[in-house]
Design a protein around this nucleic acid. Structure first.
Lengths: 171, 171
DNA sequence: AATCAATTGTTACAACCACAACCAATATCA
DNA sequence: TGATATTGGTTGTGGTTGTAACAATTGATT
């Protein structure tokens, strides 16, 4: 439909035409139409905007937000369970948990059944901040959907569902 | 529609029920249904799979692949232009360019018009590798679309287009 | 019971990244 | 022209991340 490879900065002198040497084989690839690239860019744009909110509101990093969100949703879990549900690496979880614990937003309770693990849960302070952030998150998502339009948002969700269903977990 | 918050690992003893204390206000947020999270996960899954390919084929990092792809598409550009078209930070471009130059995949030519900039272009060796990677990229995208199904892929593209159109560039 | 394998979580280390500082060159404007 | 601001690109630094190694505990096998 549209062009999509224009340069809206307008500063440079010569606009680069898409006409390199093109050796022998099948030619170029339009990066800005390449699905993995587009997905990445879209995710980054949305995530950055949302990250600004919880960083401004609570000074959280992304891993901290995810741990908070997971604990807020499920109540009490171990670190590995958090990692599984939020798709984060062990060490990321470990450090985010430590950080939230330092803020007294969560508490560790040794498990009586398995002495390797600790049960993690939000403190009242943590839950209060979680509740505030949930409101912000809901508002953000609603605003995003409104911006995209219900129709486009629904299609986006369909596409994401397909990826989730057909591709396994990220690893 | 569907549940989406189940745990297919099945290893743990007690499955966490979604029933934390729920203070006073409106309750929890299902992270795995939250649009920014879903977008991020989907992008990461796809990117990781594709990254495995060009890392195995050519030992490239993601910034290096993007610089290669951009130069391959546009022929000759400056570092700033590469950054603008591939949405990468200055320093990332600088170091990726240096790395590709060390492999003799690209050449620098001082610009006669502006002695601050250097015109960057792929060497024959670089273009050859680019051509190979373009084939891999096309195959990957085709396989991805086939996996998702044409229908779902089209909806995904619509959603991404909406994000690109309605949301500005990542910063 | 004793050994070996697997799991949980933390930490050391190296790679990577963005921010800021910086140099060189150009543009702006008095 | 001369002073100042702006731009292109590189480098140093602090912070973040993943890999690997590790201690502690549990499970499996005999």
């Amino acid at each position: 439909m549209t062009d999509r490879v224009e340069d809206k900065a307008g500063s440079g002198a010569s606009e680069r035409q898409q006409e390199p040497s093109e050796g022998a084989a099948g030619g170029r690839l339009d990066l800005s139409a390449f699905l993995p690239y587009r997905l990445n860019q879209a995710a980054e744009r949305v995530s950055q905007r949302f990250a600004r909110l919880y960083r401004a509101e609570a000074g959280l990093t992304r891993p901290e937000w995810r741990v908070l969100a997971t604990l807020g949703q499920f109540g009490t879990m171990t670190a590995t369970e958090i990692g599984r549900h939020s798709a984060m690496h062990k060490t990321k979880v470990s450090r985010a948990v430590y950080s939230l614990e330092s803020r007294h937003w969560l508490t560790r309770t040794p498990s009586s059944a398995d002495r390797r693990v600790e049960m993690l849960a939000l403190s009242p302070k943590g839950r209060q901040n979680y509740n505030d952030l949930v409101t912000i998150a809901r508002d953000f998502e609603a605003a995003l959907v409104a911006t995209l339009g219900e129709e486009a948002a629904a299609r986006l969700r369909d596409g994401l569902t397909a990826i989730e269903d057909k591709l396994g977990p990220a690893r």
